[in-house]
Design a protein around this nucleic acid. Structure first.
Lengths: 203, 203
DNA sequence: AAAAATACCAACCGGTTGGTATGTTGTCAA
DNA sequence: TTGACAACATACCAACCGGTTGGTATTTTT
């Protein structure tokens, strides 16, 4: 017993963490099971002990990503604002500040995966869709509150603006990947914030 | 001579056309050379006669896509407007009207490819980046003209707004893939148009 | 008409793929 | 002590992958 082995299902967590990093860099399809095992430091036997297939890993990764980012954003400081509109703008401030490091480090796992799998792996697509929708729903709540607070009844819905904000972020990631830097993403968030301020006459 | 064979390199064009459709549906990596050959109705020998590798096909597909869409948008009716702002808004109207049919039919080839290859195939990434940049540059020209026409000197650049519009479109495609429909993309273009109208006080 | 280049094809190759079958080891309840 | 079971590891497989081969038919050049 030279090495005190961890009792907890260690390999599963390591594989999911590896999936986050490798898939965001190479994409879902180009990431082989061997790649994942190598990055996680486990064997193939461990992989197929915890996941019944590569697709199953994809679904689990999307679910785990949803949970992880859910906690990450729920505990972010922008929720402290009393004014709901400030929470929405603070959310976007926060998203801008996390655009650090390499492109593969700040881009979105589920946005990457759903583009490759939407037509071939419905289970992964659904898991990614749920992740995006759930996240958008949280922003929608603040937008709706901001509309209520400002006594506005516009011809667009809080939900559509929440989803639009996700589209802007996902699209900004694609351009960042194309250009090899976060600058375009920063600019795009600036534009989105300016749009929201204009909608609420808060300049 | 029962079949009058085309003198022109036929297989190459058929392979590129197949690439447009298959890659947009399955993604670049998941599309095998055999898939392409099957869809194009040619053999593998023909493939590697015209393209020295799969990556070379990817670059050629991006270049061909850039040329094709360049002509497509250059000949679209929205250029007829004398008012440059109307051309910008007309461009977005046009982009909305082409959101027809299956998701894989209206989404963007280079946006799909660059996400998978940005970290592993620089040649493909560069070709995709060039396609997006060139397209954005055309919209930038109309935005710049609109700013000039309205005598505006805002704290954002025409270029950043042009790139933002591409981010919105690319992001809308991702959400459309996740949700399996074009509705979100329509809504997102609505928001983008509303933003531009607000920027130019044209409501 | 000869020579050279182009366009294409069927068969094949070695390596990689996702996945499986069969151990081995540590943990814990009976 | 033992038996059951989870958590891995090792060895292996058939299918598929991108790419190569040697060849033929056609077109272009000389």
């Amino acid at each position: 017993m030279t090495k005190p082995k961890a009792a907890k299902p260690d390999a599963r967590a390591k594989l999911l963490d590896a999936a986050f990093n490798v898939i965001r860099a190479k994409g879902y399809c180009a990431t082989s099971v061997d790649d994942l095992c190598r990055a996680a430091g486990v064997t193939k036997g461990a992989f197929f002990h915890h996941f019944k297939s590569k697709e199953d890993l994809g679904v689990a990764a999307a679910d785990c990503w949803a949970e992880m980012t859910g906690i990450f954003f729920a505990t972010a400081p922008y929720h402290d604002h009393e004014d709901p509109l400030e929470r929405v703008l603070g959310y976007l401030d926060f998203r801008r500040t996390i655009l650090q490091g390499e492109v593969r480090e700040f881009t979105c796992l589920v946005g990457t995966m759903v583009q490759e799998t939407y037509d071939t792996a419905p289970a992964i697509r659904d898991a990614c869709e749920a992740c995006i929708s759930d996240h958008a729903a949280k922003i929608e709540a603040d937008i709706a509150a901001a509309l209520d607070h400002a006594n506005l009844k516009p011809d667009w819905s809080a939900k559509s603006l929440a989803l639009h904000s996700q589209a802007v972020l996902q699209g900004a990631f694609i351009l960042a990947k194309a250009q090899g830097g976060a600058e375009i993403a920063v600019d795009s968030i600036d534009h989105l914030q300016r749009y929201i301020r204009l909608l609420f006459n808060r300049l």
